[in-house]
């Protein structure tokens, strides 16, 4: 891992404690009226998302230790959990999410937490880069002997250099994406590291009106009866 990435991981470790403290301080606020309760809940939700990204970065530092077990994971269940967690954010930003599952293979070989993070980061990306009232899409389907999870957004198209990196299946380090302001490309970097660990493939499809990000997962044979 290069020095720049190491420094990012170091900063993430330092940020974790203050974020958890801020979250706890927000939760400790008492005697609030309805409007201030909404502000408090927003503060907690923002802290939760920041803590999640910090935890993801810290996990990247631990990937080398092979601590994350690969196991059969119900991919639809992971998608359901992520969408439940992000429902609030979609609603808050006046975004819609269309969900379609058509995969026949229900179990994939993955690490639950790492897969959850990949889908979470893709969907978070979709929240930010889809316009008001426009639907993003979460699709799970079979592609040959793999299960593909796709998140389609209707925002600015992905720059071709980032697309090339994703096509290669590996993003070296977080870089800002010019056509997608306000992002350091952190979500895609996290997705690329986690997918490589799990032996899953990631990629992106550039559309004229947005981007589809996907992860291809190996079907688990463990629980197959036929």
């Amino acid at each position: 891992m290069d020095e720049e990435v190491n420094n990012i991981l170091l900063v993430a470790t330092e940020l974790k404690s203050p974020l958890a403290t801020l979250r706890q301080m927000a939760l400790s606020l008492g005697g609030l009226d309805v409007n201030n309760k909404i502000v408090r809940d927003d503060m907690v939700a923002v802290s939760d998302r920041a803590i999640r990204q910090v935890n993801d970065l810290m996990r990247i530092g631990k990937l080398g230790d092979r601590l994350f077990e690969m196991e059969p994971v119900a991919v639809r269940g992971v998608c359901d959990e992520v969408t439940r967690e992000l429902q609030y954010l979609f609603h808050f930003n006046k975004r819609d999410l269309f969900i379609r599952y058509s995969n026949r293979a229900r179990l994939v070989t993955a690490n639950y937490e790492l897969l959850k993070s990949i889908i979470y980061n893709y969907l978070l990306n979709a929240v930010y880069y889809t316009g008001d009232g426009v639907k993003s899409e979460l699709v799970v389907k079979d592609i040959h002997d793999k299960v593909r999870v796709i998140v389609r957004d209707y925002g600015p198209s992905l720059p071709v250099d980032v697309w090339r990196e994703m096509k290669r299946g590996f993003i070296e380090k977080p870089t800002s994406i010019a056509m997608r302001p306000g992002t350091g490309g952190l979500g895609l970097y996290i997705a690329s590291r986690f997918s490589r660990y799990m032996g899953a493939g990631i990629g992106a499809v550039r559309h004229r009106d947005g981007t589809s990000f996907y992860v291809d997962l190996t079907v688990s044979k463990q629980a197959r009866l036929f």
């Binding site: 404690s17 958890a20 403290t21 706890q24 301080m25 939760l27 400790s28």
Partner: peptide, 13 residues
């Protein structure tokens, strides 16, 4: 060791 966190825990008691 985190003073603010300790205060939050104390408040919740």
């Amino acid at each position: 060791s985190n003073i603010e966190m300790a205060n939050c825990v104390a408040k919740a008691c």
